[in-house]
Simulated assay, not measured.
Amino acid sequence: MYDPTVARLTYRALLGRRRALILFALPALLLLIAAAVRGFNGPDDAVASDVLGGFALATMVPLIGVFAGTGAIGPEIDDGSVVYLLAKPVKRPTIIFTKLIVAIAVTMVFSAVPTLLAGLILNGNGQQVAVAYTVAALVASIAYAAIFLLLGTVTRHAVVFGLVYALVWEAVFGSLVSGARTLSVQQWALAVGGRTAEGDLVTSEVGLPLATVLLLAVTVLATWYAGRRLRSLTLAGEE
């Protein structure tokens, strides 16, 4: 189910010069914000939770997921180079699964690690806040990678739709509109991460059992349908 050659090519595409700049920019900004907030306010659990929840989890993680998920396959479909990959003796579900693993790994590295570092800078993991948001970022990375990988297979405007979802639905509706929170990856991830925190600084309006089911369902269904979409692509000479 995992092909090292496909993985290597996908890593190379995702970590090319342009995308690497974007992937490094958001974590660097988070760390700068964390350092500035710590310098001005000193250690504070509530402030740390606000920064990690408001910027890291609500904005940075989904944006990195957009670039990693859509970039894992979208450009190959857009420019037609995917035909060379499909012509190789590799099963198409294997291609999707491999690209998903790569997208998850890249999203985790560029989102969860900076989240942990920022939390430690802000307050040294007071009340387990840094660890809680890191766990939430890890969990969210899996779902976002699957969702945006699927987008990359269904539309040539995957990045645009992904940005709308990340910036409008997750960052605005998922944080402010109570009815939309049940359908927010951010809230599902907070339900999981919040279990490791003390007190009520890391909370979610979605219960842990429901959040776990939704995270699994979205990840599995998105991956399955992305595989179906890739199988629907045909090469010249195929019946």
Rank of each mutant, 00 (worst) to 15 (best):
Asp45Met: 07
Tyr144Phe: 15
Phe97Trp: 10
Ser81Lys: 01
Thr98Arg: 02
Gly69Thr: 09
Pro89Asp: 01
Ala130Arg: 11
Ile64Gln: 13
Phe55Val: 11
Pro89Val: 00
Thr70Trp: 09
Phe55Met: 10
Gly74Leu: 01
Gly53Thr: 02
Thr115Trp: 02
Val66Asn: 08
Ser111Ile: 00
Pro93Leu: 00
Val135Tyr: 05
Val131Gln: 10
Thr59Arg: 14
Ala105Glu: 11
Gly126Gln: 12
Leu151Lys: 07
Thr70Ala: 15
Thr134Met: 14
Arg92Trp: 00
Gly74Met: 04
Val106Leu: 07
Ala58Leu: 00
Ala146Lys: 02
Val113Ser: 10
Gly65Cys: 06
Ala87Ser: 13
Ala118Gln: 06
Gly126Tyr: 03
Ala112Asn: 08
Gly53Val: 01
Ser81Met: 10
Pro75Ser: 15
Ile101Pro: 04
Met108Glu: 13
Val83Gln: 03
Pro89Gln: 06
Leu52Ala: 00
Ser81Asn: 03
Asp79Glu: 04
Ile147Gln: 12
Val61Lys: 06
Asp79Thr: 03
Leu149Val: 06
Val51Phe: 07
Leu117Val: 15
Thr153Met: 01
Ala46Ile: 04
Asp50Gly: 00
Gly74Asp: 13
Asp79Leu: 05
Thr98Ala: 04
Leu52Ile: 00
Ile77Glu: 11
Thr70Ser: 14
Thr115Glu: 13
Gly69Met: 09
Met60Thr: 11
Ile121Tyr: 04
Val82Ala: 15
Gln128Val: 04
